[in-house]
């Protein structure tokens, strides 16, 4: 059974996501999106993943909101009357069917924290038993991310740098192009 605090938080997450989608003012939708992110962070913390929660709060909730506000600040929002999309009924039926299938499949997932689960039986026991003495890191997440999985993290750092460079190369050129259009 879902613990009551988790259930309340999950309802709030869904409610803020729905409110963010329904809002007509981009800035209000953004604030609700930030609320959604903070609730997700609280949920991760509750589920015993403080590192993920930390990242979500710092990056997903704070930084992403600032980036979106900066983007909105420099653009003109295009708000027209909202038309219901064509084929909405069909999409809804497909979504409901997919949701039902996923819900049924979720019943076959192992219980959270089950040590017999396939995901926990492969390399995890070694990491958990030997991690502290092998990597010298008492926070197992740091030991795994930087030491055991150092290659992956290096790759991530390069992906991040590439993303930043792409932003720096593409977006200012777009500003420049818009200014030339205006003049």
């Amino acid at each position: 059974m879902i613990p009551p605090l988790d259930a309340v938080l999950l309802v709030l997450v869904v409610a803020s996501a729905a409110a963010a989608l329904e809002g007509r003012d981009p800035l209000a939708a953004l604030i609700l999106f930030g609320v959604f992110s903070f609730q997700c962070a609280a949920f991760y913390a509750l589920e015993g993943a403080p590192d993920v929660s930390f990242t979500e709060a710092a990056l997903g909730a704070t930084m992403a909101t600032v980036f979106f506000v900066a983007a909105i600040h420099g653009t003109t929002p295009m708000l027209g009357p909202r038309h219901p999309p064509k084929g909405g009924r069909f999409s809804l039926a497909v979504l409901l069917a997919a949701g039902a299938a996923l819900g049924l499949a979720a019943r076959g997932l192992p219980v959270t924290g089950d040590p017999e689960a396939p995901a926990a039986a492969h390399v995890s026991p070694r990491y958990i038993e030997r991690g502290a003495e092998e990597t010298g890191a008492r926070n197992l997440v740091t030991g795994v991310v930087v030491d055991y999985r150092g290659y992956d993290t290096l790759g991530e750092a390069f992906v991040l740098l590439t993303a930043g460079l792409a932003c720096l190369l593409i977006i200012p050129a777009a500003w420049l192009g818009r200014r030339e259009d205006a003049s």
Binding site: V66, F67, T135, D147, G164, C167, L168, I170
Partner: peptide
């Protein structure tokens, strides 16, 4: 390993902070 991990973590921190600033700088309209 712990000492080298700290050096690597500092590198990651520097890279992440730099990229965040780059994206912010790129996003604000001139």
């Amino acid at each position: 390993r712990a000492a080298a991990t700290f050096v690597v973590e500092s590198g990651v921190g520097l890279a992440v902070a730099g990229v965040m600033l780059i994206i912010y700088e790129a996003l604000i309209a001139p």
